[in-house]
Design a binder for these strands. Structure first.
Length: 490
DNA sequence: CTGTTTTATCCACAAATCG
DNA sequence: CGATTTGTGGATAAAACAG
C-alpha cells in the first residue's frame, strides 16, 4: 500500500512519480471518460511528486487553468485513492520546448480561485452542492428565451438577502436539460451567500434529497435529517422530476417544503418539465406547486447562442490573446449545437483549446472535423406517446386503437410493436408502459416484447419494418427544438 | 356456420432490484 | 426497509382458423 518516498535521492522518486502517473491516468480515464481525457489531460505530465504534493505540468496556460478549475478536485481525489498522503495538487504551465507560445506579455496566474471561503461554506446546509463559482448572475447570458426566469431568480435572491418574504412560493423553473436552470440556481446561491451575512442556504438535487432521506430512515436518524431542513432561509432543489413516482420521498419532501413555505422562507425548484407534466405527482402536491410561480426557460435561439459564444470567447481572449475564432466558425457552432448550452460551451472550449495549442486561427474545416461527433450525437428524448403516434401512423391505424381493447391482428401487431419500441427506446418499466397503453397489465407488455423479438427473428421483413420505425423515431418529426440546419438554407 | 386452436390479456404471486 | 420492477404459471375469452 504505501510507497514510501525517501527524498534522499532523486532516483526512486522519479520512478515512483511515473508509476503514480500511469495509475492516475488510467483511473482518470475511466472516471472522466475517454473523450474529456483526451482533450484535456492527454498531455499532462508529472513535474514533481512528493508524499504530500504533486505537481503536474500542462502544455498551455489555458490548459492549466481549465484543468485546474474543472478537474482539480477530481484529480486530487483520485490521487488520494492512490496515496492518501497527498494534500495538494498543483498545475503549472510549462511549455514544451518546441512549442513556442510566445505571448509572453503576461501569462497571468489568474488567482487560483478561492475554494469557497469558510464563512460562506458554513452557511451552506449539509449535503449542499458546492456552488460553481463560474455560474453567477453576471455570467448568465440573458436573451428573450430566458429573461423572465432570470429576472425572477434575481428578484428572489435579492429578497432573501433583504430578508423579505417571498410573494410566491415556490418559484418553479423548468426547461429542457442544459438551458440554464442549474446555472440560475447556482447564481441565486452565490448571490445570497455573498451579499448576506447570515442567510442559510440549502441547495440539493432531488436525487440526493431522496438518497439522504432514505439512508436517514434506514439508520433511524430522521430527526437529524429534519433539523437540517428546518433551519434554512432558502431551499433550492434541482431536478425535481427525479422524485416523481417515489411516493414516500415525495411525501417527506412536501412536508418539509410546506414547513418552510409557511414560515415565509424562499423555495426554488427546478425540473425538466412543468409540474402539470410531471406524472406520478399527487394532485394535492401538484396544486401546492402551482400555487407559486411557474416559469419556463425556453429553447435558446441562435442570437442567444451567439451571444453566449461571444462572451466565452471574449473572456478567453482577454487571458490568452492570439486565439482567433472567426465569425463563420461561431455561426457554425451556434447553428449546429442548439439543444444544450453545456454542449455548446464544451464545443467552444475545445475549439479554443485547439486554437491555443496550435496558435492558428480556427478554421471552419477544422471546427467541422473536431466537432463531428458532438453534432451527430443528437440524442432525442422520446415519449411513449410519440412512439404510439408514430407507430400508429406507420401502420395506418388510429392512435385510439393503441389503447383500445380490440385484438385483431391488424391492431395487435402495431400495438405490440409500439410496446416493444417503448421498452427499448425509453427507460419506462413494463407497468409504466402498460399503463400508457390503455391501462394494460405489465405482463402483457412483457408478452408483447417477447412476441416482437420472436417475430422479427423469424421474419426479416418485419424486422426491417421495426428497424425503420425506430430510425424514423430517432431522427424524429421535430416536435420540439432541433433544427440541425441552424442558419439558412432549406 | 361450428368446433378447435391460438394468443392477447389479466391475475395472483414470487424473486430481484432500487432508492 | 418498503416500493417498484421483473418474472412465472395459469385462467379466460377474443380472434384466427379448419372444416
Amino acid at each position: 500500500m504505501d510507497k514510501m518516498v525517501s527524498t534522499d535521492f532523486g532516483g526512486p522518486e522519479e520512478h515512483i512519480s511515473q508509476e503514480v502517473w500511469s495509475q492516475l491516468r488510467s483511473m482518470l480515464q475511466t472516471e472522466l471518460g475517454e473523450k474529456k481525457f483526451q482533450i484535456w489531460l492527454q498531455n499532462l505530465y508529472v513535474v514533481s511528486a512528493s508524499d504530500s504534493e504533486v505537481e503536474l505540468g500542462c502544455p498551455t496556460a489555458f490548459n492549466r487553468d481549465y484543468v485546474n478549475q474543472n478537474f482539480g478536485a477530481v484529480i486530487l481525489r483520485v490521487l488520494r485513492e492512490i496515496n492518501p498522503g497527498v494534500r495538494t495538487v498543483v498545475f503549472t504551465f510549462a511549455p514544451r520546448p518546441h512549442l513556442s507560445i510566445d505571448n509572453s506579455a503576461h501569462v497571468l496566474p489568474r488567482e487560483a480561485q478561492a475554494p469557497v471561503d469558510a464563512s460562506i461554506a458554513e452557511r451552506l446546509g449539509p449535503g449542499s452542492i458546492p456552488p460553481n463559482p463560474s455560474c453567477t448572475f453576471r455570467d448568465f447570458v440573458v436573451g428573450k428565451s430566458n429573461h423572465i426566469a432570470y429576472t425572477a431568480a434575481m428578484k428572489a435572491a435579492e429578497q432573501v438577502v433583504a430578508a423579505q418574504k417571498p410573494q410566491f412560493t415556490p418559484l418553479f423553473l423548468y426547461s429542457g436539460s442544459g438551458l440554464g436552470k442549474t446555472h440560475l440556481m447556482n447564481a441565486v446561491v452565490w448571490h445570497v451567500l455573498r451579499n448576506s451575512a447570515s442567510a442559510r442556504v440549502l441547495y440539493i438535487t432531488a436525487e440526493s434529497f431522496m438518497r439522504r432521506f432514505i439512508t436517514a430512515m434506514k439508520e433511524r436518524e430522521t430527526l437529524a435529517f429534519k433539523d437540517e431542513m428546518r433551519n434554512v432561509d432558502l431551499l433550492l432543489v434541482d431536478d425535481l422530476q427525479f422524485i416523481a413516482d417515489k411516493n414516500a420521498t415525495q411525501e417527506e419532501f412536501f412536508y418539509r417544503f410546506n414547513e418552510l413555505a409557511d414560515q415565509g422562507k424562499h423555495v426554488i425548484l427546478s425540473a425538466d418539465r412543468s409540474p402539470a407534466q410531471i406524472d406520478g405527482v399527487g394532485d394535492r402536491i401538484r396544486a401546492r406547486l402551482l400555487h407559486g410561480v411557474t416559469l419556463e426557460i425556453n429553447a435558446t435561439d441562435i442570437e442567444l447562442r451567439l451571444a453566449i459564444l461571444e462572451r466565452k470567447i471574449e473572456r478567453f481572449q482577454a487571458q490568452y490573446p492570439g486565439v482567433v475564432i472567426g465569425d463563420d466558425v461561431r455561426r457554425f457552432v451556434a447553428g449546429r449545437i442548439a439543444s444544450n448550452i453545456r454542449e455548446l460551451e464544451g464545443a467552444i472550449h475545445k475549439l479554443m483549446y485547439i486554437a491555443d495549442t496550435t496558435q492558428q486561427p480556427m478554421t471552419l474545416d477544422t471546427a467541422r472535423r473536431e466537432l463531428a461527433d458532438v453534432i451527430n450525437h443528437n440524442e432525442r428524448r422520446l415519449s411513449v406517446d410519440e412512439i404510439k403516434r408514430t407507430t400508429a401512423n406507420f401502420y395506418g391505424i388510429r392512435i385510439a386503437d393503441m389503447d383500445g381493447p380490440r385484438r385483431t391482428r391488424t391492431l395487435v401487431r402495431p400495438r405490440q410493436t409500439a410496446m416493444y419500441i417503448a421498452k427499448s427506446l425509453t427507460s419506462r418499466s413494463y407497468p409504466e408502459i402498460g399503463k400508457r397503453f390503455g391501462g394494460r397489465d405489465h405482463t402483457t407488455v412483457m408478452h408483447a416484447v417477447r412476441q416482437v423479438e420472436r417475430h422479427s427473428a423469424a421474419d426479416p421483413v418485419y424486422h426491417e419494418e421495426v428497424q425503420s420505425l425506430i430510425r424514423l423515431l430517432k431522427d424524429g418529426a421535430p416536435s420540439q427544438g432541433n433544427d440541425p440546419n441552424g442558419t439558412s438554407k432549406t
